[in-house]
């Protein structure tokens, strides 16, 4: 074995360096650094308006989220200037919190678009309890839980290397939460250990999702910066006890 062949676990899949992002002329992220290695799942905590969603959107490359400084490196490639579809094609997938409805486009066809190749659609839809929704327009009249399941079905079909999830548990009832948790576990290959290749970056407000999906690292965002990185369970406990304010103060 040559020295060059590193353990895959040490490979960096996503690296965000000193990222500054503007939305409509206002800077929201003031220099974010983040590194996700092979097979890792990270969670993002933080109060409303702290920039969590902006970070995810910037990683996906939506034009409204303008990078003014810093770099996003994915699998060794600088993708800072790439359009979203090229990032998707390279293996980044995102779950939308409030996806738009596309009239006349059936969920069935949407899932096929995501897959870009052959998939066992009926088995996947069965698993996500969405068989009856396949012929409906994507997101049209879907409830909160149905939207989450539909988003996850699309992501399962896309099978990205890095999954970006924005509050996957919000608006989901207990019954659906199990299903959502199971789908995320599957996306992130949580039932594997050594051969796990998928990465995740999950925004969670409540932390409920941690009951279903184990995370390796947690980050607390405040005012456009990551102020604390560490054990996600401990962070969550701290936040629950003392609130974000205290949590932010501890770093000062």
């Amino acid at each position: 074995m040559s020295e060059r062949e590193e353990e895959p676990r040490d490979q960096v899949v996503l690296e965000v360096r000193d990222l500054h992002v503007e939305v409509e002329g206002r800077e929201i992220l003031h220099g974010v650094d983040l590194m996700i290695k092979f097979g890792e799942t990270h969670v993002l905590f933080g109060p409303n308006g702290s920039g969590k969603t902006t970070l995810l959107m910037a990683i996906m490359g939506f034009p409204r989220y303008r990078v003014t400084r810093g770099r996003i490196i994915f699998a060794g490639e600088d993708i800072t200037g790439l359009e979203p579809h090229l990032r998707a094609q390279r293996g980044i997938g995102i779950m939308f919190q409030r996806p738009p409805t596309i009239r006349g486009l059936a969920l069935r066809d949407m899932v096929r678009l995501c897959a870009g190749g052959e998939i066992d659609l009926s088995a996947m839809a069965e698993e996500m309890n969405l068989v009856d929704f396949l012929d409906r327009d994507v997101n049209y009249g879907f409830s909160g839980g149905e939207i989450k399941r539909s988003e996850l079905l699309q992501l399962l079909a896309q099978d990205p290397r890095l999954v970006l999830l924005d509050e996957p548990e919000s608006g989901v009832d207990m019954e659906n939460l199990q299903l959502v948790g199971r789908a995320i576990r599957k996306l992130l290959q949580k039932d594997r250990r050594r051969t796990r290749t998928k990465c995740g970056l999950i925004i969670t407000h409540t932390g409920y999702i941690l009951d279903y999906v184990e995370a390796d690292t947690g980050h607390v965002m405040c005012d456009g910066r990551i102020v604390c990185s560490g054990n996600p369970r401990e962070q969550l406990e701290g936040i629950r006890k003392f609130g974000f304010e205290e949590c932010a103060r501890c770093t000062r």
Partner: peptide, 29 residues
């Protein structure tokens, strides 16, 4: 709607493909 285009782009479709898909859907009564 721009957000519809971006939704499809995030799934791997180029802007042109996304537009065509939305138009097809629009006409798909």
């Amino acid at each position: 709607a721009q957000e519809e285009i971006e939704y499809l782009m995030a799934r791997g479709l180029s802007e042109e493909e996304a537009t065509a898909t939305i138009v097809r859907g629009f006409l798909n009564v």
